[in-house]
């Protein structure tokens, strides 16, 4: 019985969702901190200033898994884990992309400060990860990713 419960707990949920679009329904969201301006900004420094993270010192408590060389810039796998206490959100920035702020993830309830996804990179660039805590403190870490074939204007 205990074994079975463990199996259920470990069960991996796989959603391969064919999500149908359904017209212009209002956005149902708890997005109270949607930083549209920072997302639309084309310069990394300005975007960082807009989120209030212009001067942030590096932290070793953020783990990033990204390839050193990405052959295809349309699909660059990225995995981030924050070991910083009270991580509220994780930001992903690609310095050389037309809009550097790529994604922001808010961890609600007890969701672990972990995310794995796939992003586009136009060219070789610095990749910056910022962590914001519930007391609005920022931490950062970065990697350089070399891109062989760029991934913004190309066909995926």
């Amino acid at each position: 019985m205990a074994k079975m419960n463990k199996r259920i707990r470990r069960k991996i949920l796989n959603f391969v969702g064919i999500l149908l679009t359904s017209g212009m329904l209002p956005l149902k969201s708890f997005a109270i901190e949607w930083d549209k301006k920072a997302f639309n900004e084309s310069l990394l420094d300005k975007s960082l200033r807009l989120i209030g993270a212009a001067n942030v010192s590096p932290s070793e408590k953020i783990d990033i898994k990204v390839p050193q060389i990405a052959e295809n810039g349309t699909i660059v796998p990225i995995e981030v884990t924050s070991k910083i206490q009270n991580t509220k959100s994780i930001y992903v920035f690609v310095e050389k992309n037309p809009s550097p702020l790529t994604a922001q993830f808010f961890f609600k309830s007890k969701t672990l400060p972990f995310v794995s996804s796939r992003i586009k990179m136009r060219e070789s660039s610095r990749l910056l990860i910022l962590v914001k805590t519930s007391s609005d403190e920022f931490f950062r870490t970065e990697r350089f990713v070399k891109v062989t074939i760029g991934g913004c204007g190309e066909d995926a």
Partner: peptide, 22 residues
């Protein structure tokens, strides 16, 4: 609510997302 993601045009086509929920 357990998670909210704000995405951009820099996320790959057919977005793949993976999270861990206790």
């Amino acid at each position: 609510p357990v998670l909210e993601a704000h995405l951009s045009r820099s996320v790959s086509r057919n977005p793949f997302l993976h999270f861990k929920i206790p």
